[in-house]
């Protein structure tokens, strides 16, 4: 048994009720401290994979193991196992309106520590640390539905940060963010990786991949894992990116002139946009 493995997936398939396939025979190993980007177009199964890794969905075929133990519905019935797993793995949902279900920012950030039965002082200290780390102290009594997109994303991250997980699962974290918030979020992911946390990010934002990941997995529209390599290898393989629908041929303006020919390229780094 490889001790530094966080996740080990062997021929994992998943289908929703009604038979709609979301993942087909996926095998994947993730080591502790690894920064992995999961790429794929809409509907390729990225979100489903993250929910399987977080023990929210369970494989319909194959096996998912986390920290050496199988993730099954029966395993999560066991309170100590559930408790220990949830403390170690945190998922940031794509839709912040799903993630932020509490009536105030303070309640949202305190939710996880409270469910973990931490003492009152511990809960307060964790909430205050998370508020300060994400610079959202001023929002503590605000209602989530009154926040801007960027503020909601910060609160969503704080709600997981207060748990102090060693594995971060992030589902399309840059969706709907303005360039400044995107750059800030990339810094946050880099910082988590620097402190030895494992960070698995599902995205189709190719511009941030090299910054947030040391390894990239690509899913195709048939819900298969079609490639696994370094960001450099994957991003330079145009045939692969075209086949997985991550880039497309198009026409647009270069220096005020519309290109005459169909071409494709990757748009990189939100703030230093240029090509």
């Amino acid at each position: 048994m490889d001790n530094d493995l966080v996740f080990d997936l062997q021929n994992v398939s998943f289908a929703y009720e009604g038979g709609q396939a979301a993942l087909d025979s996926v095998s994947l190993k993730v080591k502790a401290g690894e920064r992995l980007a999961v790429l794929g177009s809409n509907g390729s199964g990225k979100s489903t994979l993250l929910k399987l890794l977080d023990g929210l969905y369970f494989a319909t075929a194959g096996e998912v193991r986390a920290f050496g133990a199988p993730l099954t519905e029966e395993a999560f019935q066991d309170e100590p196992f559930n408790f220990a797993f949830r403390r170690r793995v945190g998922l940031v949902f794509q839709d912040t309106d799903v993630q932020l279900f509490s009536p105030s920012v303070w309640d949202e950030i305190a939710f996880a520590p409270l469910q973990m039965e931490m003492a009152r002082e511990e809960v307060e200290s964790r909430v205050n640390t998370a508020l300060a780390a994400l610079r959202i102290e001023k929002l503590r009594d605000r209602a989530p539905h009154r926040l801007s997109g960027g503020e909601k994303r910060r609160v969503a991250l704080a709600s997981v940060l207060s748990l102090g997980p060693e594995v971060w699962l992030m589902d399309e974290p840059t969706t709907g963010l303005d360039p400044r918030s995107q750059a800030w979020l990339v810094d946050f992911i880099i910082e988590q990786g620097r402190t030895g946390k494992s960070v698995i990010t599902a995205t189709h934002d190719l511009g941030i991949v090299e910054l947030i990941a040391d390894r990239v997995c690509v899913f195709d529209e048939g819900h298969h894992l079609m490639a696994d390599g370094t960001p450099k290898e994957i991003l330079s393989d145009e045939t692969l990116l075209l086949a997985s629908n991550l880039i497309h041929e198009h026409r647009h303006a270069h220096e005020a002139e519309i290109a005459e020919h169909m071409h494709h390229h990757i748009h990189v780094v939100p703030q230093e946009h240029g090509h």
Partner: peptide, 24 residues
Amino acid sequence: HLSSEVYLAMQSRGFRGHPRTMDT
């Protein structure tokens, strides 16, 4: 759809059917 997703989000952060709340 929202309610089932929210339930997953709650489970992900340790909700096990018995909510614990706290006031300040």
